[in-house]
């Protein structure tokens, strides 16, 4: 469909909307019906019992710890990557950008296998870690690393895009006024990219919270240590699918709350 910007606003011609609107509704149904299914089938009356069960308590606590730690780690390591990518021109930058985004498209199980081949006992860094007395596999640290690996790209990409849009003249002005690099970052750059940073953090957290494949591959499945909520849902599904439905519903509510609270804020800006 062509648009003529010079013309005064006119109703677009054609029947495109007859095609697009039903398809949009069909697409919406695809997203909404599974959620309705969960809500309709889950035995909500038993929610209290399920929430009080030790396995669920442990999984909720662990998910909180792992996802928050993963977001923290993503911020500490990911923001500098975004900053370097946005501020410096160097050979291989595009390659690095692609590598950093790779975990977003990689099947999570592959991410888990990759982590094993790097940090597992027989992995590339296995002997080094062993000589340092560090054992990662099957520990909460492994679960955090797995979540960070798959979730950090969301933060990095959001930050990099925002950093590239920051008005460099403001930063330069601050520099001529004698501000140090860190002070410029804190007082000029960060406030400018705050909404994008928040969006990146929200997506990063939601992804870390939902992480399953890399975790079960790299960190295993052990209650209170590596069994986060998604793993608990999967385990419950094998025997007690009513319980699994309720756990899924809890996950759904938490994820929706994160996206709603944080993304809503950003779009307004």
């Amino acid at each position: 469909m062509t648009t003529h910007n010079s013309n005064p606003p006119a109703r677009a011609q054609g029947w495109g909307h007859y095609l697009l609107i039903p398809l949009a509704l069909l697409g919406l149904a695809l997203f909404v019906i599974p959620l309705l299914g969960l809500i309709a089938r889950a035995p909500i009356a038993e929610l209290g019992v399920v929430l009080r069960s030790p396995a669920v308590g442990a999984a909720l606590r662990l998910s909180a710890v792992v996802s928050v730690a993963a977001v923290g780690l993503s911020l500490v390591l990911g923001f500098p990557i975004a900053w370097v990518l946005a501020r410096f021109e160097f050979p291989g930058r595009r390659l690095i950008r692609a590598v950093v985004a790779l975990p977003m498209v990689l099947p999570p199980v592959v991410a888990g296998v990759a982590l094993l081949t790097a940090l597992g006992r027989r992995g590339l860094l296995g002997p080094l870690l062993e000589s340092l007395g560090i054992e990662l596999a099957f520990t909460t640290t492994a679960a955090i690393l797995a979540a960070t690996f798959v979730a950090a790209p969301f933060l990095i990409i959001a930050c990099e895009a925002a950093l590239e849009n920051v008005d460099r003249e403001l930063e330069d002005a601050a520099a001529t006024l004698g501000a140090t690099r860190l002070r410029i970052l804190w007082t000029v750059t960060l406030p400018a990219i705050w909404p994008s940073l928040l969006a990146g953090l929200a997506l990063c957290w939601a992804r870390a919270l939902g992480e399953f494949g890399a975790t079960i591959t790299f960190a295993g499945n052990f209650r209170g240590r590596t069994q986060t909520m998604p793993l608990a849902v999967y385990e419950a599904l094998q025997t007690d699918h009513e319980g699994a439905l309720l756990l899924s519903l809890i996950m759904l509510a938490i994820s929706l709350a994160i996206l709603f609270a944080l993304r809503g804020k950003l779009v307004r800006r």
């Binding site: 596999a137 079960i216 295993g220 499945n221 052990f222 240590r225 999967y234 385990e235």
Partner: peptide, 12 residues
């Protein structure tokens, strides 16, 4: 009990 203490993962 001893084996359970050494158990690091319950696979699916």
């Amino acid at each position: 009990g001893g084996v359970e203490r050494n158990l690091v993962s319950n696979e699916t």
